[in-house]
């Protein structure tokens, strides 16, 4: 999964805060600065687990504080290459 796929899912699952450009360079911007609280991250990880048929650890939401960290958890489970930036 790349950043663009993740931000698309975030947009669909939890909307976008006014004044946040999800298409910008947000890979290392903390989720709370992007306007996403832990429930928003929980919602998007739940959808990813379901639709990608993976299981993320219970600590993922607490530990994955940026898009880069979340993508690392996801891609590890997907058995994919480490994070590539948005296409």
């Amino acid at each position: 999964m790349n950043l663009k796929e993740l931000t698309t899912l975030l947009r669909d699952c939890a909307g976008v805060d006014e004044g946040v450009d999800l298409d910008g360079d947000v890979l290392d911007v903390p989720f709370d600065e992007l306007g996403y609280d832990s429930l928003a991250v929980l919602q998007v990880t739940g959808v990813i687990e379901r639709d990608y048929k993976i299981q993320l650890s219970d600590d993922t939401v607490a530990e994955a504080t940026t898009p880069r960290l979340l993508l690392e958890f996801i891609n590890e489970q997907l058995g994919a290459a480490p994070v590539a930036n948005a296409a």
Binding site: R11, C13, A14, G15, V16, D17, E18, G35, L39, A40, Q43
Partner: peptide, 8 residues
Amino acid sequence: IPSRLLPA
């Protein structure tokens, strides 16, 4: 309603 609040 702001888009962040629509799903919630």
